[in-house]
């Protein structure tokens, strides 16, 4: 529903502009913003490469990589300044994983133009060495900052963060994973050591924003959206950190009506989003940038 509204508004604006005069067309169609970045994201796709069957009770004919790609292509055509991200658990859930061990999942994510994903607990289902083997099929980055991967096969393959340059913007993306003990057996994750995600996120986002001068910092989190207990989740992470603009979450398969807006430790707004599971939905966040201190756009407008 939102999407349709958005497209309608845009075309209405262009139509009026075109009528009003060619000279100001370009400035109007950009809505006077200096830059426009689109983020598309999934989480917990769980090997759902095909759409759900037509007779599925809850999600008939929904999801599927071929449909997802059609939408991604459409968005990239409209705005080439688009990043495609995933928050983990691409593996496990259909025979595609049982038969091919994640090869097809990573090949398809590469074909769909994903830029980055993070390590979900189910990525370990066939062992950490299998993740390393399947990364040969990945043309995207697998990011994690809070697993100490020393002495594992992922040591040189997984980076804590990556910076993507889009239309002159520097977009810093970091990855966070859930505590594995009790969730995954040790013979699968081997020497992987879990580090406190809050401490790591504070440090990594500081490096990305202050030292590496990123314009935007995005965290791909497989911690989970919300727990009633003290267990760290995306909402707590957003409150306890600064320098992060957007948390793309996973693990809890949470369907949200709209992205949550949380105040961080400096009272600045952070978006936290998650889009269910199985590729039923795709999240879309559009960031519009202007020069710092531009008097026309002093306060941040969030439309969710």
């Amino acid at each position: 529903m939102k999407r349709i509204d958005f497209i309608k508004t845009t075309s209405a604006v262009s139509a009026v502009t075109a009528f009003g005069g060619i000279g100001i067309l370009s400035s109007f169609s950009k809505q006077n913003f200096k830059k426009h970045l689109t983020i598309l994201h999934t989480n917990d796709v769980h090997s759902h490469i095909d759409s759900f069957p037509k007779n599925h009770t809850k999600y008939p004919n929904q999801g599927g990589a071929a449909r997802r790609f059609s939408y991604i292509k459409q968005v990239v055509n409209e705005n080439p300044n688009t990043l495609v991200l995933d928050a983990g658990d691409a593996f496990q859930g259909t025979p595609y994983f049982n038969f091919y061990g994640g090869e097809l999942e990573y090949k398809i994510m590469s074909k769909l133009g994903y830029h980055a994903s993070t390590i979900g607990n189910h990525e370990f289902d066939n062992g950490i060495d299998n993740i390393a083997a399947q990364l040969e099929h990945a043309k995207f980055d697998l990011l994690n900052a809070n697993y100490d991967l020393k002495n594992t096969s992922l040591e040189s393959l997984v980076k804590p963060h990556q910076i993507y340059e889009v239309d002159g913007l520097k977009i810093g993306v970091l990855g966070l994973g859930i505590e594995l003990e009790g969730l995954v057996s040790k013979d699968l994750y081997k020497e992987t050591k879990y580090l406190n995600p809050v401490d790591i996120a504070i440090e990594e986002s500081r490096i990305l924003k202050d030292e590496l001068a990123c314009d935007l910092v995005i965290c791909l989190s497989h911690l989970g959206y919300e727990y009633k207990s003290d267990k760290i989740d995306d909402l707590k992470l957003a409150k306890q950190t600064k320098n992060i603009d957007l948390i793309i979450g996973g693990h809890t398969h949470t369907f949200l009506d709209k992205p949550s807006v949380v105040n961080n430790s400096e009272d600045k707004k952070v978006l936290v989003n998650q889009v269910g599971w199985a590729g039923i939905n795709l999240g879309r966040i559009d960031f519009y940038f202007d020069e710092k201190g531009n008097s026309e756009n002093k306060s941040l407008v969030i439309e969710v």
Binding site: F6, G63, N273, G283, N297, V301, V304
Partner: peptide, 20 residues
């Protein structure tokens, strides 16, 4: 530059979107 406007939406991947 800094973000001045953010909009968020969710797109349901349903049969209205053709398979590639």
């Amino acid at each position: 530059v800094e973000p001045v406007k953010i909009s968020g939406q969710q797109i349901n991947i349903n049969p209205e979107i053709e398979k590639n």
